[in-house]
Computed example of a mutant assay.
Amino acid sequence: MGRHSKPNEHRRIPSSSLVLAMLAGPAAAVIAAGADVHRDVEPVAAAPAPIPPPSPEAAPYDLQVVASGPMAGPADFKTAGQAVSVASWKVADRAVRQALPTGVASERGLQVKTILAARAISVVFPEIQQIGGVRADALRWHPNGLALDVMIPNPSSAEGIALGNQIVAYVIKNAERFGMQDAIWRGVYYTPNGPRGSGNGHYDHVHITTTGGGYPTGSETYFR
Rank of each mutant, 00 (worst) to 15 (best):
I167Q: 07
I167W: 03
I167L: 06
I167S: 04
V168F: 03
V168H: 08
V168W: 05
V168Y: 02
V168G: 01
V168N: 07
V168Q: 01
A169Y: 06
A169V: 08
Y170P: 01
Y170G: 00
Y170H: 02
Y170Q: 03
V171F: 08
V171R: 07
V171I: 02
V171K: 05
V171S: 01
I172R: 02
I172S: 07
I172W: 00
I172Q: 01
I172L: 05
I172C: 02
K173T: 03
K173V: 06
K173W: 00
K173F: 00
K173R: 03
N174K: 01
N174C: 07
N174P: 00
N174V: 05
N174G: 03
N174T: 06
N174W: 05
A175T: 07
A175C: 09
A175L: 06
A175G: 02
A175P: 04
A175F: 01
A175E: 02
A175W: 02
A175K: 04
E176W: 03
E176H: 01
R177I: 05
R177A: 05
R177P: 02
R177H: 03
R177G: 05
F178A: 06
F178H: 08
F178I: 00
F178T: 07
F178M: 07
G179I: 06
G179H: 08
G179C: 10
M180V: 09
M180K: 08
M180Y: 01
M180C: 05
M180H: 03
M180I: 07
M180D: 02
Q181P: 07
Q181V: 15
Q181K: 15
Q181S: 15
D182E: 04
D182A: 00
D182K: 00
A183T: 02
I184K: 04
I184H: 03
I184A: 06
W185A: 01
W185F: 12
W185T: 07
W185C: 04
R186G: 07
R186K: 09
G187H: 09
G187A: 00
V188Y: 09
V188M: 05
V188D: 04
V188Q: 06
V188K: 09
Y189D: 13
Y189R: 14
Y190V: 10
Y190L: 12
Y190R: 10
Y190S: 06
T191E: 11
T191I: 10
T191L: 13
P192F: 14
P192I: 14
P192D: 15
P192M: 15
P192N: 15
P192S: 15
P192Q: 14
P192R: 15
N193A: 11
N193G: 11
N193Q: 13
N193P: 04
N193Y: 08
N193R: 11
G194L: 09
G194V: 05
G194S: 09
G194Y: 05
G194I: 04
G194A: 09
P195T: 13
P195M: 13
P195Q: 14
P195R: 13
P195H: 14
P195A: 15
P195W: 13
P195F: 13
R196K: 13
R196T: 10
R196G: 11
R196V: 13
G197M: 10
G197E: 12
S198F: 12
S198P: 10
S198R: 13
S198Y: 14
S198T: 12
G199I: 15
N200T: 10
N200P: 01
N200A: 11
N200L: 12
N200E: 10
N200D: 10
G201H: 11
G201T: 12
G201K: 11
G201S: 12
H202M: 11
H202P: 11
H202T: 04
H202R: 14
